[in-house]
């Protein structure tokens, strides 16, 4: 099961495209591993969506997905895996 999330998320890291830590409700959590990443570029004719999604394994074993808006540049939550 997954829980869909929304809202922005703070990230830290030297590479702006690859977060090393995410700020969760419980504070900063280190990104242990990026499991996979993919790009969505669609809906250009109505409300353009250009995002890079990352599925992250956080320290402590939690798995979540976040995305970076490729136009605006900010990071947002997408979902959390139970």
């Amino acid at each position: 099961m997954t829980e869909l999330l929304d809202g922005s998320v703070e990230v830290r890291g030297a590479d702006p495209a690859t977060p090393e830590a995410l700020r969760t409700e419980a504070g900063w959590r280190r990104v242990e591993r990026i499991v996979t990443r993919w790009v969505v570029d669609t809906d250009w004719w109505r409300r353009p969506i250009r995002r890079e999604y990352l599925r992250c394994l956080l320290a402590g074993g939690e798995c979540c997905e976040v995305y970076r808006d490729l136009d605006a540049g900010g990071w947002s939550w997408s979902r959390r895996y139970d």
Binding site: V39, D41, T42, D43, R46
Partner: peptide
């Protein structure tokens, strides 16, 4: 339409 095509997953999800 593009809307309908997108709703049915007929469009490629990105420009890659």
């Amino acid at each position: 339409t593009l809307d309908n095509a997108a709703a049915h997953g007929l469009l490629l999800p990105n420009a890659e």
